[in-house]
Structure formats: C-alpha cells, structure tokens
C-alpha cells in the first residue's frame, strides 16, 4: 500500500485507479495463464474443501481458494481457517490413525508425517 492509498482510505475515497488496475490485472492474468475457467476453478475449490473437511473442520464461509501469479508462475493458493481437528480420522493408512485427534478448541493442524 502506498501513502496515497492510505490517505484515500482515511478519507473514505476510492483507491487510486492504478492500484485497482494492478489488482484486476493480476487476477485476470492468473486465470488467463492457467487456462482454468471460473467453473472449473469453482469445482476444484469445492472438491478441495470436501477433502480437507474430512480431516479438519473448516470455516466454509472464510475459506478461499484462488490463483495467484508472480514472475509468470501461477500458484493455487488455499487459505482455509481450521476450526478444529476431526475426532476420527478415517484414512486406511494405520499411521494416520496416530494423528492426535484433539478436542481442543484451538485450531490444530498436524502434519501428515507426524
């Protein structure tokens, strides 16, 4: 954020149009470059959320899966706030059953290698 953006925000004005242009471009180029149409992205988002929610309870409202791009490399970025881990983890691998299924209220993320 530049000083001008900050002042605009303070005064309740719109951000400078160059800032808007940059943000819109970054978004549209991430899509152009990956050749993913919005429907496909939405479907992928739903499936990712489905898989993740098998393991942990996530905040579906806040969850966000999007494309970001930097240096002509596009990345799929998922930001999924975890409410709590699921008490029972189902996967067939026995090791995975070891995963601590805390009832803790605090978000717990245990790496799969644990």
């Amino acid at each position: 954020m530049t000083l001008r953006d900050f002042v605009n925000k303070l005064l309740g004005r719109q951000p400078a149009s160059a800032t808007t242009a940059r943000e819109r471009l970054q978004l549209v180029l991430a899509h152009d470059r990956s050749d993913l149409n919005p429907e496909l992205l939405e479907q992928m988002r739903r499936e990712i959320l489905e898989v993740v929610s098998r393991y942990v309870e996530i905040d579906l409202e806040e969850g966000d899966v999007s494309l970001e791009t930097e240096d002509r490399v596009t990345a799929l970025v998922a930001n999924l706030p975890i409410k709590r881990a699921r008490p029972v983890v189902k996967p067939d691998a026995a090791a995975a059953a070891e995963v601590a299924a805390d009832e803790a209220d605090e978000p717990v993320w245990t790496a799969s290698q644990a």
Partner: peptide, 18 residues
C-alpha cells in the same frame, strides 16, 4: 498520471509481465 497513480506504474508492468 503515473505520479498521481492514475496510470499503471512502470514497475507494475514489468513485474506483471516479468
């Protein structure tokens, strides 16, 4: 226009297009 941030900055364009 660039000074007033009403036009994409040079760095914006070179960063985006790399």
């Amino acid at each position: 226009m660039m000074a007033n941030q009403e036009m994409l900055a040079v760095d914006d364009v070179t960063d985006i297009l790399a």
